[in-house]
Amino acid sequence: MGNSKKQNTRTSFVALLGGLITAVIIAVTSLALLAAVGINNFQATQQPAATTPAITVSAEKGAVEETVDVKVHSLRDASVTLTGASLGAGVVTSPTLPVGSTIKEGDSILSINEKPVLIIQGETPAYRPLGPGLKGDDVAQLQEFLVRENFKHWDKKGVFGASTALALAKFYKERSLPVVNENGEPTTSLRQAGLPLSRYFFAKSMPLEIAEDCGPAGQQAADFKCVLQSSATSTVISSSADRDLQGMQVLLTRVSGQPVAATVGQPTVKQQATGPKEADAAQEAAQPATERWFSLTGLPKDSAEFAENARVVVQTSAKDGLRIPATAIHEDANGQSFLQSASKTDSGEKATTNHPVNVLFCANSYCAIEGEKLAAGMEFSVLE
């Protein structure tokens, strides 16, 4: 009986001890697992963050253009004011034409002492009588007028020779006018025909319209004054840029979409634009006070209407030169420009290489560049 109790007691103790050992093992295992997970999480938090790849751009072949935006205007040619200062003494003997009348080249705008005064197209103003032996642009203008009137001559351009005198004499005869010399004196020698200063005006463009009342017949020639407005128009440009654009190329566009190239001419003044006055006033109010106006040369003779906006090319680089976005241009402490490309060291570590570069100029987010060992397709990092 005593032995049986002892046996039961020993069995209970062994069972209790086994349970304690099992609990300790489970606890130790759990702590080990928790420690492992914590270490892994700590290591994960200590890993470097993923780096953002560097942004690169490529050098490429192509021109860089610096341009200035300009406005295109279609303006009437300047008005012409004719006065009696060159007409000499006399009286206006023909009734003057009413306002709005059209004057064509070769027409008589008035008569002084019953002698008609002609109007001829020409840039150079009338300032002297024209006759044999004279030379100059005014002589060339008279010759060109005679040719347009189908009176040919064989003299050298700008030289008033016998052939020019004969052509002028034939013109007089066809108009039933007396043949006169350069002083206005009648002559029987056709080779002495001339054009007195009191018998002609030069006007830059034809035809013209009488813009103001020229006064009545019977007035003294010295009091004569007549304002004529050209019906011809010129294409000009205006710019708010404070720079001289003369001699530069301007790129225009016809309203049909066709591009047209011309050259910026001499500075000019604003003149009356064609179109409704209300539109002109609104346009004038919107224009900056510092606006500069330029004429154009080299436009096709058949020029139609142009789009309102155009570009003047200030400078351009070679078409086969290199260009790169301006964001790739770096500059060191000494002001030297360079491009930066990615490279690797001998041990395989990442590095960068600087390439000295000569920046010609930058425009429209691109720079024209030159440099040794630079070629189209090479990639360079942009400024961070």
Rank of each mutant, 00 (worst) to 15 (best):
L166D: 12
E182C: 01
T164K: 03
H153D: 14
V159D: 13
V179I: 15
F160N: 04
A162L: 08
F151N: 11
A193Q: 06
E174N: 03
K173T: 14
E149W: 09
F160Q: 00
N181E: 06
K157V: 06
F160M: 02
K156Q: 15
L168D: 15
V179W: 09
V179F: 07
A193G: 04
V180G: 04
E185A: 12
T188S: 13
L142E: 09
Q143V: 03
H153Y: 13
L142K: 00
L146D: 07
N181I: 02
S176T: 05
K156P: 00
G184D: 12
Q192G: 03
S189F: 08
E149P: 07
Q192I: 04
V159Q: 13
T188C: 00
T187P: 09
F145A: 09
K170G: 12
V179R: 07
Y172R: 10
N183I: 01
L142F: 04
L166K: 11
V159I: 08
T188V: 02
K156V: 09
K152W: 02
G158N: 05
R175L: 03
R191Q: 13
E144I: 00
E185V: 15
S176V: 00
L190D: 13
L190H: 01
S163R: 01
L190Y: 01
A165E: 07
Q143N: 07
T187I: 08
L168M: 14
A193H: 02
W154P: 01
K156Y: 06
L142P: 10
G161C: 00
Y172G: 10
K170D: 15
G184H: 08
K170P: 08
F160K: 03
T187M: 09
F160H: 01
P186D: 01
D155Q: 02
N181R: 06
E144F: 03
L190Q: 05
W154L: 11
E174W: 03
R191S: 14
E149R: 15
F145L: 08
E144T: 11
Q141L: 10
